[in-house]
Amino acid sequence: MSGSALEPGFRYRLFGLTVLSEIEMPQLPAAPVGRVDLTISRTAIDHPRRREPGVVAEFGPAMQYLAWETVGAFRIRRADLIEVDPNAGVSDALVALPLLGSVMATLLHRRGLLVLHASAATLGGHGIALLGDKGAGKSTTAAALVAAGYALLSDDVVALAFTGGNRIEILPAYGQLKLWDKAVAGLAPLPLREQGQLHPAIAKSQYGLATGFSAEAAPLSRLYVLGRGDTAGVTMVEPGEGLAALLRYAYMARFGEAGFGPSMAAFFGRAAALASAGKVRILQVPEGVQRIGQAIAALEHDLDLRPAGELRANIGAM
């Protein structure tokens, strides 16, 4: 879809796309006037499940519908359009939570990207993703990397683009992290701006990065599955174990087989290739945020990087 200077809305850059949005999301980097790749439009959505309680996800070959009882409804009918129907009185800030999470992940999957529930950063030209269950420490470890002088690429939704040949890139999202308050206190110094609690029912808060975000895609080097242990370290995994991890942490897996739709075979093939190439490894993170610098050192060793230096030593010192 092409845009013009006369089109109203907010212009953002997100996952390599220029976005024209009727939903205001100031946490996103601004984009200049020009071609638009994705439009986010407010419109009435008439769907038979519109008033169902809880979360509703309905996926078909031509349309994906998601709704949250407390937020509103979202619909994807084209790869360049997300339709949004917020509930009365719901702020753009609240709409942005599912919009930048499950809805955007669904749109990116439809556009042919491999989407993971993960955090990602770039270290000395190496793009890495951190995978794990809820509470595994993905965002905290990503924040520690920023504190050590590296750059965030994405938090929560990670999109891999297969750009031809053997090149795979992690696309940049925006400079925001969702963190526990105790993690922020233990990771000082961090260039953060607190943006408020995610939701009254969610203990984490949103923090915008003043610096430490990379707006450039980074070539994928590793996919680390986070584990806990007494010591930090990186271990290789067998291809079968790596494939199982990628299937487990695929963002669309939360919606079952219907979430993948006709792209299931393509996702499986790409995930198998990543696992066979040794891209998937386990990163063991010691308990306690004051010891997370040891995990950063293990990453640097695995990537054959020079340590970030004194910045890493400051992690947990304040």
Rank of each mutant, 00 (worst) to 15 (best):
G3N: 10
L6K: 13
P8L: 11
F10C: 10
R11N: 01
R11Q: 03
R13D: 12
G16T: 06
V19P: 04
S21W: 07
M25A: 12
L28W: 09
R35C: 00
D37M: 02
T43V: 14
D46E: 14
R49W: 13
R51E: 15
E58K: 05
A62E: 15
E69S: 11
A88R: 14
A88P: 03
G89E: 09
V90F: 06
L94S: 03
V103W: 00
A105E: 05
R110L: 12
S119V: 05
A121L: 06
H126N: 15
G127C: 12
A129M: 11
G132V: 05
G135C: 10
A143T: 10
A147C: 09
A147K: 04
G149R: 02
Y150C: 03
A151W: 01
L153Q: 12
D156N: 09
V157C: 01
L160A: 06
A161Q: 12
T163V: 15
G164L: 07
G165N: 00
N166M: 10
E169T: 04
G175D: 01
D181M: 09
D181R: 15
L192S: 08
Q197I: 11
L198K: 02
A203P: 00
K204H: 06
K204Q: 12
G208T: 02
A217K: 09
L223P: 02
V225F: 05
G227K: 10
D230H: 00
V234N: 05
T235M: 06
E238C: 00
G240C: 03
G240L: 11
G240Q: 09
L246F: 08
M252H: 11
F255M: 11
G256R: 08
E257R: 14
G259S: 08
G259R: 02
A265G: 07
G269F: 03
A272I: 05
V280R: 04
L283C: 06
L283A: 04
Q284G: 06
P286N: 05
E287S: 00
L299R: 05
R306F: 00
R306W: 00
R312L: 11
A313W: 03
G316C: 06
